[in-house]
Amino acid sequence: MLFDWRKRRLIRFSSKGVWLIVLCAIGAMADQPIAFPHNSHVKLGLDCLDCHIGADTRAAAGLPSVRKCMLCHAKLAKEKPEVQKVIAYANKGIEIPWVRVYDFPSEAHVKFRHAPHYQAGISCSTCHGDLTKETVAEHTVTHTMGSCLTCHRQKHASEDCAACHF
């Protein structure tokens, strides 16, 4: 089975906010396989879309493959211990098992798409925090239906339940 149905049901019938808290906790504590510093990459002039290539056109923003890391790190900063780990993953031919920080639990029944939000001019930092100051990605912004709807109202986007939940 793909999901822990039993657990999901227990959560569902308890407090609605519990999953958010649980997610925040997981996100904040996320122990990434590599201490990837977002801030230093942003400082070097990389755009979010350079690595999260789906954010402007697809549903999922996506994580870069290890080959993408190696486009630069085959030459750059090879001596750093964290980069060494990247090289090790690349040499083994396996993807870096990043821990996902932001996600909607399947019990929220949300079909979120990045593309329309990006095209509506919502900046990445609105939902993901200021990554110029963060090192390893953390769950800094809490997403609730209230925060989604506030923005949808301001931007005159659809407030129909079925726009997101189906």
Binding site: F3, R8, R9, R12, S106, E107, H109, K111, H165, F166
Partner: peptide
């Protein structure tokens, strides 16, 4: 073979 565009409904 679940369709990712459609929710999987839970009991209840």
């Amino acid at each position: 073979q679940h369709n990712p565009d459609v929710s999987i409904r839970m009991a209840g």
